[in-house]
Computed example of a mutant assay.
Amino acid sequence: MAQQGILIVISGPSGTGKGTICRELLRSNPHLKYSISATTRPPRVGEVDGVNYLFIGKNQFTTMIDNGELLEWAEVYGNFYGTPRHYVLDQLNNGYDVVLEIDTQGAMKVKDNFPQGVFVYIIPPSLDELADRIYKRGTDSLDAIQNRLNCASGELSLAHNYHYIVVNDQVAAAVQKVETIITAEKYRAERNTDLIDSLCHTKCTCNEHWVPSSK
Protein backbone atom coordinates (compact mmCIF):
# COMPACT_ATOMS: atom_id res chain seq x y z
CA MET A 1 0.00 0.00 0.00
CA ALA A 2 1.34 3.42 -0.96
CA GLN A 3 2.06 5.80 1.88
CA GLN A 4 -0.52 8.55 2.20
CA GLY A 5 0.64 11.88 0.84
CA ILE A 6 1.44 14.91 2.94
CA LEU A 7 -0.40 18.24 2.91
CA ILE A 8 2.13 21.08 2.94
CA VAL A 9 0.68 24.47 3.85
CA ILE A 10 2.87 27.44 2.95
CA SER A 11 2.27 30.97 4.21
CA GLY A 12 4.18 34.19 4.61
CA PRO A 13 3.80 37.95 4.29
CA SER A 14 3.25 39.45 0.86
CA GLY A 15 6.56 39.80 -0.98
CA THR A 16 8.39 36.94 0.70
CA GLY A 17 8.38 34.88 -2.50
CA LYS A 18 6.16 32.04 -1.30
CA GLY A 19 4.43 31.86 -4.69
CA THR A 20 7.76 31.51 -6.47
CA ILE A 21 8.82 28.80 -4.03
CA CYS A 22 5.59 26.87 -4.67
CA ARG A 23 6.03 27.10 -8.44
CA GLU A 24 9.59 25.80 -8.20
CA LEU A 25 8.50 22.96 -5.93
CA LEU A 26 5.81 21.94 -8.42
CA ARG A 27 8.17 22.24 -11.38
CA SER A 28 10.79 19.93 -9.87
CA ASN A 29 8.49 17.46 -8.08
CA PRO A 30 5.99 15.61 -10.31
CA HIS A 31 4.70 13.82 -7.21
CA LEU A 32 3.49 17.14 -5.79
CA LYS A 33 0.03 18.54 -6.55
CA TYR A 34 -1.26 22.09 -6.11
CA SER A 35 -4.53 22.66 -4.28
CA ILE A 36 -6.73 24.93 -6.40
CA SER A 37 -8.99 27.26 -4.42
CA ALA A 38 -12.68 27.74 -5.13
CA THR A 39 -13.96 31.31 -5.48
CA THR A 40 -17.18 33.13 -6.24
CA ARG A 41 -15.48 36.05 -7.98
CA PRO A 42 -15.63 36.13 -11.79
CA PRO A 43 -12.55 35.05 -13.76
CA ARG A 44 -10.07 37.73 -14.75
CA VAL A 45 -8.69 37.96 -18.28
CA GLY A 46 -6.50 34.95 -18.96
CA GLU A 47 -7.69 32.92 -15.98
CA VAL A 48 -8.93 29.38 -16.65
CA ASP A 49 -11.50 27.50 -14.60
CA GLY A 50 -9.89 24.48 -12.94
CA VAL A 51 -6.39 25.86 -13.47
CA ASN A 52 -6.23 29.19 -11.66
CA TYR A 53 -9.36 28.74 -9.54
CA LEU A 54 -12.56 26.75 -9.41
CA PHE A 55 -15.08 29.46 -10.33
CA ILE A 56 -18.46 28.74 -8.76
CA GLY A 57 -21.59 30.62 -7.73
CA LYS A 58 -22.36 31.87 -4.22
CA ASN A 59 -25.19 29.37 -3.76
CA GLN A 60 -22.87 26.47 -4.56
CA PHE A 61 -20.19 27.90 -2.27
CA THR A 62 -22.69 28.26 0.58
CA THR A 63 -23.76 24.66 0.06
CA MET A 64 -20.13 23.54 0.25
CA ILE A 65 -19.78 25.39 3.57
CA ASP A 66 -22.96 23.81 4.98
CA ASN A 67 -21.85 20.32 3.89
CA GLY A 68 -18.36 20.65 5.40
CA GLU A 69 -16.75 20.40 1.96
CA LEU A 70 -14.11 23.07 2.62
CA LEU A 71 -10.96 22.80 4.72
CA GLU A 72 -11.13 26.57 5.15
CA TRP A 73 -12.92 29.56 3.66
CA ALA A 74 -13.06 33.33 3.95
CA GLU A 75 -14.90 36.30 2.49
CA VAL A 76 -12.65 38.91 0.89
CA TYR A 77 -14.09 42.13 -0.58
CA GLY A 78 -17.49 40.54 -1.04
CA ASN A 79 -16.21 37.36 -2.69
CA PHE A 80 -15.72 33.94 -1.12
CA TYR A 81 -12.55 31.87 -1.33
CA GLY A 82 -12.01 28.37 0.03
CA THR A 83 -10.05 25.12 -0.16
CA PRO A 84 -12.12 22.13 -1.36
CA ARG A 85 -11.63 19.19 0.99
CA HIS A 86 -12.50 16.52 -1.58
CA TYR A 87 -9.65 17.30 -4.00
CA VAL A 88 -7.04 17.48 -1.24
CA LEU A 89 -8.08 14.21 0.41
CA ASP A 90 -8.34 12.37 -2.92
CA GLN A 91 -4.79 13.34 -3.88
CA LEU A 92 -3.41 12.47 -0.44
CA ASN A 93 -5.15 9.08 -0.45
CA ASN A 94 -3.65 8.38 -3.87
CA GLY A 95 -0.19 8.93 -2.43
CA TYR A 96 0.43 12.42 -3.81
CA ASP A 97 1.73 15.29 -1.70
CA VAL A 98 -0.34 18.47 -1.91
CA VAL A 99 0.93 22.04 -1.50
CA LEU A 100 -1.42 24.79 -0.41
CA GLU A 101 -0.33 28.45 -0.55
CA ILE A 102 -2.59 30.40 1.75
CA ASP A 103 -2.69 33.30 4.21
CA THR A 104 -2.18 32.83 7.93
CA GLN A 105 -5.87 33.06 8.81
CA GLY A 106 -6.77 30.33 6.35
CA ALA A 107 -3.78 28.21 7.36
CA MET A 108 -4.89 28.15 10.99
CA LYS A 109 -8.36 26.99 9.91
CA VAL A 110 -6.74 24.20 7.91
CA LYS A 111 -4.64 23.30 10.94
CA ASP A 112 -7.81 22.96 13.03
CA ASN A 113 -9.44 20.71 10.41
CA PHE A 114 -6.32 18.83 9.29
CA PRO A 115 -3.71 18.91 12.09
CA GLN A 116 -1.57 16.22 10.41
CA GLY A 117 -0.58 18.75 7.75
CA VAL A 118 2.89 20.31 7.63
CA PHE A 119 2.84 24.07 8.11
CA VAL A 120 5.74 26.11 6.73
CA TYR A 121 6.13 29.86 7.17
CA ILE A 122 8.29 31.79 4.71
CA ILE A 123 10.05 34.91 6.00
CA PRO A 124 12.37 37.47 4.36
CA PRO A 125 15.96 38.03 5.53
CA SER A 126 14.84 41.43 6.87
CA LEU A 127 11.99 43.92 6.61
CA ASP A 128 14.26 46.19 4.56
CA GLU A 129 14.74 43.37 2.06
CA LEU A 130 10.98 42.76 2.03
CA ALA A 131 10.30 46.45 1.33
CA ASP A 132 12.85 46.41 -1.49
CA ARG A 133 11.23 43.36 -3.09
CA ILE A 134 7.74 44.86 -2.96
CA TYR A 135 9.01 48.16 -4.33
CA LYS A 136 10.81 46.47 -7.25
CA ARG A 137 7.61 44.69 -8.27
CA GLY A 138 6.31 48.09 -9.30
CA THR A 139 2.69 47.18 -8.63
CA ASP A 140 2.07 49.12 -5.40
CA SER A 141 2.07 52.76 -4.35
CA LEU A 142 4.28 53.92 -1.48
CA ASP A 143 1.23 53.97 0.81
CA ALA A 144 0.33 50.43 -0.24
CA ILE A 145 3.91 49.27 0.36
CA GLN A 146 3.88 50.76 3.86
CA ASN A 147 0.54 49.08 4.54
CA ARG A 148 1.93 45.73 3.40
CA LEU A 149 4.94 46.16 5.68
CA ASN A 150 2.69 46.99 8.63
CA CYS A 151 0.64 43.88 7.89
CA ALA A 152 3.83 41.83 7.58
CA SER A 153 4.91 42.81 11.09
CA GLY A 154 1.58 41.60 12.46
CA GLU A 155 1.67 38.38 10.46
CA LEU A 156 5.21 37.56 11.57
CA SER A 157 4.03 37.47 15.17
CA LEU A 158 1.89 34.44 14.24
CA ALA A 159 4.79 32.45 12.78
CA HIS A 160 5.16 30.44 16.01
CA ASN A 161 1.93 28.60 15.07
CA TYR A 162 3.77 26.89 12.21
CA HIS A 163 5.98 23.81 12.34
CA TYR A 164 8.84 25.26 10.31
CA ILE A 165 10.31 28.67 9.50
CA VAL A 166 12.20 29.08 6.22
CA VAL A 167 14.16 32.22 5.38
CA ASN A 168 13.90 33.03 1.68
CA ASP A 169 17.24 34.72 1.10
CA GLN A 170 17.76 32.85 -2.19
CA VAL A 171 14.93 31.04 -3.95
CA ALA A 172 16.90 27.90 -4.84
CA ALA A 173 18.12 27.52 -1.26
CA ALA A 174 14.64 28.12 0.17
CA VAL A 175 13.12 25.53 -2.19
CA GLN A 176 15.74 23.01 -1.12
CA LYS A 177 14.92 23.66 2.55
CA VAL A 178 11.22 23.01 1.94
CA GLU A 179 12.05 19.84 -0.01
CA THR A 180 14.20 18.69 2.93
CA ILE A 181 11.27 19.31 5.29
CA ILE A 182 8.94 17.23 3.10
CA THR A 183 11.45 14.38 2.90
CA ALA A 184 12.02 14.39 6.67
CA GLU A 185 8.28 14.40 7.34
CA LYS A 186 7.87 11.19 5.32
CA TYR A 187 10.09 9.37 7.85
CA ARG A 188 8.24 10.49 10.96
CA ALA A 189 7.19 7.49 13.05
CA GLU A 190 3.49 8.41 13.12
CA ARG A 191 3.42 8.43 9.31
CA ASN A 192 4.83 4.91 9.14
CA THR A 193 2.70 2.98 11.63
CA ASP A 194 1.29 0.75 8.84
CA LEU A 195 4.82 -0.25 7.84
CA ILE A 196 5.74 -1.18 11.41
CA ASP A 197 2.46 -3.08 11.92
CA SER A 198 3.06 -4.98 8.69
CA LEU A 199 6.55 -6.04 9.80
CA CYS A 200 5.33 -7.04 13.24
CA HIS A 201 2.60 -9.27 11.82
CA THR A 202 4.61 -10.85 9.03
CA LYS A 203 5.71 -14.42 9.65
CA CYS A 204 9.35 -15.04 8.91
CA THR A 205 9.71 -17.62 6.10
CA CYS A 206 13.41 -18.29 6.57
CA ASN A 207 14.61 -21.82 7.22
CA GLU A 208 13.97 -22.56 10.87
CA HIS A 209 17.18 -24.61 10.94
CA TRP A 210 19.26 -21.74 9.65
CA VAL A 211 22.31 -21.11 11.78
CA PRO A 212 24.21 -17.80 11.54
CA SER A 213 27.74 -18.18 10.29
CA SER A 214 30.48 -17.80 12.87
CA LYS A 215 33.15 -15.16 12.44
Rank of each mutant, 00 (worst) to 15 (best):
S37I: 06
S37D: 02
A38K: 10
A38G: 10
T39L: 02
T39H: 02
T39R: 08
T39K: 05
T40R: 06
T40G: 05
T40S: 05
R41Q: 04
P42R: 06
P42L: 02
P43T: 06
P43Q: 03
R44W: 11
R44L: 14
R44G: 12
R44E: 14
R44I: 11
V45W: 08
G46F: 11
G46R: 12
E47G: 09
E47D: 11
E47Y: 11
V48G: 06
V48C: 08
V48I: 15
D49W: 10
D49I: 10
V51I: 14
V51L: 13
N52T: 14
Y53H: 15
L54Y: 14
L54G: 00
I56D: 03
I56T: 12
G57R: 12
G57D: 12
K58I: 05
K58T: 10
K58M: 03
K58E: 10
K58Y: 02
N59M: 14
N59F: 13
Q60W: 07
Q60R: 13
Q60M: 13
Q60T: 14
F61L: 02
T62G: 08
T62Y: 08
T62Q: 12
T62I: 10
T63N: 13
T63W: 05
T63D: 12
T63L: 11
I65R: 09
D66C: 09
N67S: 12
G68H: 04
G68F: 06
G68C: 06
E69T: 01
E69M: 04
L70M: 10
L70Y: 01
L70R: 02
E72C: 15
E72W: 00
E72N: 14
A74C: 13
E75A: 10
V76F: 05
V76Y: 08
N79I: 06
N79M: 06
N79W: 13
F80V: 01
F80R: 07
Y81A: 04
Y81L: 07
Y81T: 04
Y81R: 07
Y81P: 15
Y81H: 13
Y81N: 07
Y81G: 08
Y81S: 07
G82C: 03
G82Y: 00
T83L: 14
T83D: 01
T83K: 03
T83P: 01
P84E: 05
P84T: 09
R85H: 07
R85F: 02
R85T: 08
H86P: 00
H86I: 12
Y87L: 02
Y87P: 00
Y87C: 00
Y87A: 02
V88A: 00
L89Q: 08
